[in-house]
Design a protein around this nucleic acid. Structure first.
Length: 501
DNA sequence: TCGACTTATGAACTTAGGCG
DNA sequence: CGCCTAAGTTCATAAGTCGA
């Protein structure tokens, strides 16, 4: 291995700067839930933590508030670890403490911000500050007071706090308050506190109905993105009903990819169309990335490096040698030859995102997929509109739109020439530009190849990856509030679905 | 007993988003 | 802009299983 490979110490994230367009889109489709908010019940717990802190005689001292939050989180982690829960901040630490088999666990030091101690979490305001606060603010549960301290809001936040307290009952609420203040807890008390764990939201409780009303925007004064979130969550329930099992993120993507037999009512169809546009964007992103992976293997073919014209010639040779009749005509001919309704998108996606197989063998599938997407948008003005609304169409961003516009600009040119240009201009040179920006702005060296004496030299390989659109936490939330379980849609879930559509 | 193969374990890395 | 987090994935190694 050459010495200079060591310089590529950061692997390129979004090497074509194209994933970002999809990320921006999906963020608007599930506001109030992020990739790091993993359990619904934290929303109620933090409101209770804030209210309890206020009632003990809160001051404007941020340090005191931070200590209270950190102790509340550390205790929640200990209870959850004891109960075998997942998605809780600090469980790794809690499991280590439980394994030590102390009779009484003193977590004052672990909850402090003293760097010399083994802390349950290092970030100063815990998962509250790192993940939940911004999402709870979006939902109208939390706000910042004039002293810069995060507090539960008067209306929604206080109600959530009250419902959490009611759910666990006065005795446990008192015990919980005492143990947070004390920062010491026995195993016996951890067991007693199990009803506060994230999976313990009771089926027939006001706490549960409150979370449902909150998520599905049935509260009196819904916050900004509430309707969008409600529509997406309803579409997830719809997916569960259709596939008759607990859906995973992939199931949701593919279920929402095609218009359903029985048309959805507004605003659900509009939101489904947004998800379809997002998924088309991700398909395009993966196809472009597959061409990048291929270009990298061409660069790496011998240790001598390749010029841009070497790479172009290899692309032409490979695509010409590939006895694909479809590639004999123009780009326009290619897209018109495909049926965008029956095209095997999922098989292509699975192939391109899998590590199996050589990148060169994925070039033809990637190109065909791009043509199918092109034809899909040409024949679906509703979809093209959704893409136009949700995705950037001009420099310096790259998206489904920009790439299709580029391909369409000279679409009567031959496929092989058009794609050879695409690989050079939109893939190889684009990656160089993106990596240069990251080097300048973030000082990250993310180049997958580098230029020396007019030749490109291999630095690192690349595997196309999908973006992860917050669907996993959304599904977990729906499970936490009993709308979904391991068998799919529950009775409550069916009720919620009927109410929402 | 050896080697080929499968399964289990664990370390290291990746991912997203947000704080300080 | 560096760092932090949980969960997922990948990869290497260890342990276990099997047949010759």
């Amino acid at each position: 291995m050459p010495q200079w490979t060591e310089r590529a110490d950061k692997r390129g994230l979004d090497p074509l700067g194209m994933q970002n367009s999809g990320v921006v889109l999906y963020q608007s489709l599930l506001p109030g839930i992020s990739n790091v908010t993993l359990r619904m019940r934290y929303y109620g717990y933090y409101c209770w933590v804030s209210e309890t802190y206020a009632r003990r005689g809160a001051t404007s001292d941020f340090e005191a508030w931070r200590t209270w939050v950190r102790r509340a989180e550390a205790l929640y982690a200990l209870v959850s670890a004891r109960a075998g829960e997942t998605g809780v901040g600090g469980v790794d630490w809690a499991n280590r403490r439980l394994a030590a088999e102390e009779r009484v666990i003193d977590f004052a030091a672990a909850a402090s911000t003293d760097a010399s101690q083994e802390r349950y979490l290092r970030q100063s305001l815990g998962v509250f500050g790192g993940a939940y606060y911004t999402q709870m603010a979006e939902l109208g549960l939390f706000t910042e007071n004039r002293h810069g301290i995060q507090v539960a809001t008067r209306d929604l936040g206080r109600r959530a706090a009250g419902l959490f307290a009611d759910a666990i009952g006065p005795d446990l609420a008192k015990l919980l308050r005492l143990k947070i203040a004390d920062a010491r807890v026995s195993i016996r008390d951890l067991n007693r506190l199990e009803p506060i764990a994230p999976s313990q939201i009771q089926l027939e409780s006001e706490e549960r109905s409150f979370y449902e009303a909150l998520l599905f925007a049935r509260e009196p004064s819904p916050a900004q993105g509430a309707a969008s979130r409600a529509a997406t969550l309803t579409l997830i329930l719809e997916t569960a009903r259709a596939i008759e099992e607990q859906p995973g993120p992939e199931d949701v993507r593919w279920h929402l990819f095609n218009p359903p037999q029985a048309p959805l009512l507004e605003p659900l169809e509009t939101q489904r169309l947004n998800w379809e546009a997002y998924h088309c964007q991700d398909l395009m992103q993966v196809a472009s990335a597959a061409l990048l992976a291929w270009a990298i293997t061409i660069i790496n073919a011998d240790g001598q490096g390749q010029t841009l014209s070497d790479i172009r010639a290899e692309v032409v040779a490979h695509l010409t040698g590939h006895d694909e009749d479809a590639f004999a005509g123009s780009w326009r001919d290619l897209r018109l030859s495909l049926d965008p309704g029956t095209f095997p998108y999922q098989a292509m996606w699975d192939d391109l995102t899998s590590a199996r197989g050589a990148p060169a063998d994925k070039a033809v599938p990637a190109i065909t997929l791009m043509a199918a997407l092109h034809q899909r948008l040409r024949t679906r003005p509703d979809l093209a509109d959704a893409a136009a609304r949700g995705l950037p169409g001009r420099d310096p961003a790259r998206s489904l739109r920009t790439e299709l516009d580029w391909l369409e600009s000279r679409e009567t040119d031959g496929v092989v020439d058009r794609i050879a240009d695409y690989v050079i201009v939109r893939v190889v040179r684009r990656h160089s530009w993106v990596a240069m920006q990251k080097l300048r702005r973030q000082r990250d060296y993310t180049f997958l190849f580098e230029l020396r004496d007019g030749r490109l030299f291999f630095l690192a390989g690349y595997q196309p990856v999908a973006t992860t659109p917050r669907l996993a936490p959304a599904i977990q939330f729906l499970e936490d509030i009993h709308l979904l379980d391991e068998d799919g849609l529950t009775t409550l879930g069916l009720d919620a679905l009927e109410t929402s559509r």
